[in-house]
């Protein structure tokens, strides 16, 4: 137990060793040379070739060894490939009948500083993280939102929603909105109702993406692309807001 604790302490040390911490001088030099930051990583000239998966999850306890659902749906987002064409958003809206005033997935535009007024652009798609420890599910008074015991998808039972909106406040990712027509909170369900339950293999957004940003699959299957990306030795993988302890199943990476 103490060994685990000390491992945990160690993991806190370098938790944030991401691209943001590259010295800006070097970053700019590489950019000027026409190389991407990802290229730098993959080339391994700057950082050692160590996967950060365990660091990300090591800080909140053993996670990557076991996946409790079958299939354990997950998505890996290759952010540096996203070009904000928003075809994913359109496909999602069409497929899931998302009303005008709501959204289930969105693209954020980030300007990541390089120092001295310089920055580079990155588009970051966001969607429900289908957390293993979903704060929304814990907070719901009537189990109107729940973790599907088979697939791990965080779903809604619309008729049970009393509209207290606690789940909306509890979500660290702003992934829930109130659907007036359904008189219930609505959210991404990895297209379970519209596609997966009908035998399709991909979510609408993953299928619509022209740039291969959204890799969707079964994290419990070692043969799957998502598993291999998340467990690659050479790939930096992270999740959003890990400090909340929500343990997302949507991962971010580059390249």
């Amino acid at each position: 137990m103490f060994k685990k604790f000390s491992q945990w302490l160690d993991s806190l040390e370098d938790k944030n060793e991401g691209v943001e911490n590259l010295p800006s001088e070097e970053r700019r030099r590489f950019l000027k040379m026409g190389l991407t930051i990802t290229g730098v990583f993959a080339g391994g000239t700057l950082l050692s070739l160590v996967s950060k998966v365990d660091d990300v999850f090591g800080s909140i306890g053993g996670y990557s060894e076991r996946y409790p659902y079958k299939p354990h749906y997950a998505m890996v987002l290759r952010v540096d490939r996203c070009i904000d064409c928003e075809r994913c958003m359109e496909a999602c809206r069409r497929t899931n009948h998302v009303p005008e005033y709501g959204w289930r997935t969105k693209i954020l535009e980030r300007h990541i500083p390089l120092g001295e007024g310089e920055w580079y652009r990155e588009f970051m798609p966001i969607l429900c993280n289908h957390c293993n420890n979903p704060p929304c599910v814990r907070a719901c008074p009537t189990q109107a939102t729940y973790k599907d015991s088979r697939t791990g998808i965080v779903r809604m039972d619309y008729r049970k929603c009393i509209g207290c909106k606690t789940c909306m406040v509890a979500c660290p990712y702003d992934m829930r909105y109130f659907n007036e027509e359904k008189r219930a909170v609505d959210k991404c369900d990895f297209c379970w109702e519209s596609r997966l339950s009908k035998g399709k293999k991909l979510t609408a957004c993953a299928e619509a993406c022209p740039a291969g940003v959204r890799i969707f699959g079964d994290l419990s299957d070692p043969e799957s692309e998502v598993f291999q990306m998340v467990h690659s030795e050479t790939r930096v993988v992270w999740v959003l807001r890990p400090e909340t302890g929500a343990r997302p199943n949507v991962f971010y990476t580059k390249g």
Partner: peptide, 21 residues
């Protein structure tokens, strides 16, 4: 092409300003 200027398969968001841009 990576020689004259940065290669087309890198730095996507430099030219792709997206719907937001």
């Amino acid at each position: 092409d990576g020689d004259t200027a940065f290669a087309s398969n890198t730095q996507c968001a430099r030219c792709h300003i997206g719907v937001l841009g």
